[in-house]
Amino acid sequence: MKLNIKNETSRLRAVILGTAESNGPTPKVEDCYDPKSRLHVLAGTYPKEEDMIKEMQAVENVLLKYDVTVYRPEIIKDYNQIFARDISFVIDDKIVIANILPDRDREIEATKYIWSTVKKENIIKLPESCHFEGGDIMPWNDYIFVGTYSGEDYSDFITARTNTAAVEALKKLFPHKIVKAFELRKSNTNPKENALHLDCCFQPIGKDKAIIHKNGFLVEKEYQWLVDFFGKDNVFEITKDEMYDMNSNIFSISEDVIISEQNFTRLNTWLREQGFTVEEVPYAEIAKQEGLLRCSTMPLIRD
């Protein structure tokens, strides 16, 4: 396989879409990886496997409609494999495999059959000291945008997924790119005050537009840099509740076509006003695990 990813929006040709098959039982509160899942476990509203399978099938149907090759992970019994973006990412012709939470190592093995045909020199495994997840890594042409947390209390946050060592490693791995890091707001207990990944509070769309949530960023000047980079008129600002519902975590099939959740009324209206084709899908159950469309897709090839 010849990988090719330069940005978030060029025409998609091949992608890994996670799976909710054999997702396992509702986790215990103490085993939740994020505050939103924890909230739904406590409330008795954690999503059911059959509902999540239907939602992911709706996404696959849209991808197939646009002639995208869709790969799915090998099924591991009673194991959450929904969020394919966490475990790897592609930039240019390289795939970088995550140093993920130890409990999730098997997810990587379940996708190995897909990328094992890539040239060995293009399969990158960073040192164990480099922590990252793909939701924090966002290629945008000459830039790589990276969500991170560099506080001394990093180890106290299960929601802190990408560290400074990973940012520095990316600079060495892609010296021809500008690696731009953004400090994200983290909370283990309040999902409305937690940007689990960069794509939970920001995402570029089209050629020159973006969705953003100001409070997801710890440093206001870093948020402002993004607004200035894209231009205020090209930026759609989402509220705290819209961030909680994952409005920034949509997924681009091309510069003109976006898959979005059917309940994102304000966002979807704005997208259509900007000339986008919006393919609406039900994804509110999967959103209960603090991830949405970008989190559950991992692009391999774009034109």
Rank of each mutant, 00 (worst) to 15 (best):
F251R: 00
V281P: 00
F251G: 00
A287T: 12
K221C: 09
F217K: 02
Y283W: 06
I253L: 14
G275Y: 08
K221W: 07
L293K: 00
T269H: 15
F230Y: 10
T265C: 10
V227F: 09
D241C: 11
I259R: 02
E255S: 11
N247Q: 12
R294E: 12
F276H: 00
D228R: 11
E255N: 11
S252K: 04
T277M: 12
I253A: 01
P282F: 05
E255H: 10
S252H: 03
L271W: 02
N249A: 09
I259P: 03
W225S: 11
T239Q: 10
G275E: 10
L226W: 02
T239P: 09
M246T: 02
K240L: 08
Y244I: 06
N263P: 03
N263H: 12
K288H: 08
D245V: 08
Q289P: 07
N234P: 08
S252I: 03
M246V: 05
D233P: 06
L267H: 05
Y283V: 01
T239M: 12
E290S: 13
V227I: 13
V219W: 03
T265D: 14
E280Y: 03
F217L: 06
E273R: 11
W225R: 06
T269A: 15
N247F: 14
I250G: 03
N268I: 01
W270N: 10
V235M: 10
D228W: 04
M243W: 02
Q224W: 04
L267P: 02
R266G: 10
K221S: 15
V219T: 09
E222H: 08
K288L: 07
R266Y: 12
F251T: 00
E290V: 05
V281R: 01
S254N: 05
E279P: 02
E279Q: 10
E285M: 09
N268G: 09
F264V: 01
E242C: 11
M246H: 03
E237A: 13
L293V: 01
E242Q: 15
G291S: 11
D241N: 15
D233S: 15
M243P: 01
S248N: 09
Q274V: 05
E222S: 13
N249V: 05
E280T: 06
E237M: 13
G291C: 08
N249C: 10
E279I: 02
L271C: 08
W225Y: 15
A287P: 00
I238F: 08
M246P: 01
F236D: 03
F251M: 07
F236S: 06
I250M: 07
D241V: 11
K240T: 15
K240Q: 14
S260Q: 03
N249W: 02
F276S: 00
E237N: 15
K232R: 14
W225F: 15
L267R: 02
R294F: 11
V257H: 05
F264C: 10
Q289R: 12
E290P: 00
Y223A: 06
Y283T: 00
S260F: 02
V257W: 02
T265G: 09
R272D: 10
D233I: 06
E290H: 14
V278L: 07
V235T: 08
G275P: 06
E285L: 09
